[in-house]
Simulated assay, not measured.
Amino acid sequence: MKGFSSVSRLLFIMISFLLLSCQEKEKVTEMDLLFSSLHADQAKWWRYHKTNIDLSSDFLPLGEDGDSISKKAFFEALLTGEFIAIEKKSNAARDQYQLFKLTKESDGDISYTISADSYREYKHFMMEGQQFPDFKLTALDGKTYSKEALLGKTLAVKTWFLNCKPCIEEMPQLNQLVEEYRENEDVVFLSLSLDTKAELQKFLAEREFKYAVVPQQKAFIEDTLGFSIYPTHIIVEPSGKIKKVVNTAPEMIAALKSMNKG
């Protein structure tokens, strides 16, 4: 009986170990495996991040445990440089991003990069819901625009300058957008440029841009709005509050169309 008891105890230990191992394996998700393949290689992580994570989108932020957290808390975690975001695959209408904490084995360059990359999006996010500054601006065609006069309308603003290649390359997309809203008087497209009236007139004589163009707006763009990256797009709600701040035409177009569904 004593020998049998020893064998039984050994079998019990082995079975318990196997069950525990199976349970531990079940806890390892696809996201865990993805994190393991990314966190030790900055270049591999960066490719994944730029392809799959859009911090300017209306995503659902998840904490380390997969619980919902505020977008502000999510950004603040990324800003520490201690976390990266992994996309959680689901059938939900909104993208879901979960925080994963970096380890001692993680590539140190990831920490600096995620912090720097998140800062701009965090700054833009914190502008949402704030009042757009007061303004009174005169476009090249002599028409005057002011915040007071535009209350009740949606305002799409682009900041740019002539030597900014991305600013010029996205103009066909923006022209098409303006055409789509041509019959909608409640949406106004306004662009603020760093360049002089003469420089802009020369450029626009050869290349069409259907936004209203306001020259020499460096002080308003950089000092009042606090932007230093071009292009930057701002969508202002009819109430005069900022709805969205992004850096590319596709992001702005998606946000604008989402506001104006129906």
Rank of each mutant, 00 (worst) to 15 (best):
S16C: 12
F17V: 12
L18I: 14
L18Y: 14
L19C: 11
L19Q: 06
L20H: 02
Q23A: 07
K27G: 01
V28Y: 05
D32N: 15
L34V: 05
S36L: 13
H39D: 04
D41L: 07
D41E: 06
K44P: 01
W45G: 00
W45D: 01
W46P: 00
K50I: 10
K50F: 06
I53A: 02
D54Y: 12
L55Y: 01
S56Y: 05
S57D: 15
S57L: 10
F59T: 08
F59L: 09
E64Y: 04
D65W: 06
G66T: 02
S70N: 11
F74N: 03
E76F: 01
E76T: 11
L78M: 15
T80V: 03
I86E: 02
E87H: 08
E87S: 07
K88F: 09
K89D: 10
K89L: 10
K89H: 11
A93R: 14
Q96V: 06
Q98I: 11
L99D: 03
F100N: 03
D107N: 15
D107R: 05
D109H: 14
S111D: 04
Y112S: 11
T113M: 15
I114L: 08
S115I: 02
A116G: 04
A116Y: 09
H124Y: 15
H124M: 10
M127T: 11
E128F: 02
